[in-house]
Design a protein around this nucleic acid. Structure first.
Length: 205
DNA sequence: TGAGCGATTAAA
DNA sequence: TTAATCGCTCAT
């Protein structure tokens, strides 16, 4: 049932990948998380993206091939997990913002950044997701197709997807700041800033 | 070498 | 809504 996602899954527009990652499962060692919230950082023209200033040592993985990991340190404290999308050289990725703990509660409980039993199951916020998976910037640049590393599995399709603006990007140009690049599982209670999200309308084909 | 800053978090 | 926070990035 849980099938490893292939590179073709990631080699698409970050917007599409961000939406499709909702409900998918991150596996790192004994810990498995079901993704409930994501954000797309589409390309260097996106003024909210770390790729905006051009190629740097830190963002090198984001410019690399799809299906690789970009982890960086935020506020000097929190590690944030991204999955690189689009084609190599595009400079796009999806930020994993929230997740539900599926497996490995004992281990996650012992890890830094997770204090209470409630926080163990409710990984709302990108810093907590990374802490639960025990990922730090040293992991940045790794591939998700290498066994034993961070794996991304397909999951049950979600009933309804929510969409809305990204969090913490007030520094960006208004158009990017307000762009509906954040997605979430409407059926999960592990979602941040829910009131700013609306049901995603799917157009008939 | 260091000034500036941040894709957050928790508490109120 | 607000404040704490601190290691890292990148341009000198």
């Amino acid at each position: 049932m849980t099938e490893l996602l292939r590179q073709s899954f990631f080699a698409r527009d970050a917007l599409v990948v961000a939406r499709d990652l909702i409900g998918c499962v991150l596996v790192h060692g004994e810990v498995a998380l079901r993704i409930t919230e994501t954000e797309a950082y589409r390309h260097p023209h996106d003024t909210a993206s770390h790729c905006r200033p051009g190629f740097t040592a830190r963002t090198a993985p984001m410019w690399g091939p799809p299906g690789h990991v970009y982890v960086y340190l935020c506020y000097g404290i929190h590690s944030l997990l991204n999955l690189v999308t689009d084609d190599e050289g595009e400079g796009a990725a999806v930020l994993i913002r929230s997740a539900e703990l599926e497996r490995g509660a004992e281990i996650v409980h012992a890890r830094r950044g997770v204090r209470s039993a409630d926080e163990v199951a409710l990984l709302a916020g990108p810093g907590k997701v990374c802490a639960a998976l025990a990922l730090d910037p040293g992991f940045s640049g790794r591939s998700v197709f290498v066994p034993g590393g961070l794996e991304v599995h397909g999951g049950e399709p979600v009933r309804e997807v929510l969409v809305g603006p990204r969090v913490g990007v007030d520094y960006a140009a208004p158009l990017d700041r307000d762009a509906p690049y954040r997605f979430a599982d409407a059926g999960s209670r592990v979602v941040t800033r829910r009131r700013t999200l609306r049901p995603l309308v799917r157009f008939p084909r």
